[in-house]
Design a binder for these strands. Sequence first.
DNA 1: CTCCCGATAT
DNA 2: ATATCAGGAG
Length: 210
Amino acid sequence: MKLKEKINEILKSLKKLYPDAHCALNFKNPHELLIATILSAQCTDERVNMVTEKLFKKYKTIKDFANTDLLEFEKDIYSTGFYRNKAKNIIGAAKIIDKKYNGKVPKDFDQLLELPGVARKTANCVMGNAFNIATGVVVDTHVIRITEKLGLTKNKDPKKIEEDLIKLLPKEEWINFSHMIIWHGRKICIARRPKCEICKLNRICPSVAI
DNA sequence: CTCCCGATAT
DNA sequence: ATATCAGGAG
């Protein structure tokens, strides 16, 4: 099967399986999504949502994040792991957004990339889910694992994987594709023990193990 | 490449 | 005990 036919089959199946796939991180505005996404590195979205529920009641504006005490903030986000890096990055990003962008998260991929703790995955996530602008494909741990298993890429580097996916996917699918893959990665194609026997993609997956 | 790092499932 | 979770920086 040609790769283009394959991606269309995968898209069709995923849409049927996960018709309401969406960003699982809870947020009410762009800066909340930015912070939740930084916190989500190597941490479940469920845990991030537990932390941000309290966090976003304590810190309302970008200024609140920019002016908080580092050690206090580390405690506020402690259970998400990597808390020292994440605290430094979130406060650093908030200071830049406050000073340079007048407290509003820039609606610009390259400007997002300049913020500490923000690389392509986070910038694509914010552009897509906060602003509904498709700047690329979010390549996270699930997307890396599952697109490789499905034979959609042979690359290991997230940026190259993203380039491969951009070529394969219609632009209007860029944002939703990651949501559906992540849903699939959490429910079926689980890293430790993939449930290939009940996976709807098992007929077209080269890595199926039954 | 290594380091950052707590919580959870297996 | 160990792998894994919506990664990024040095």
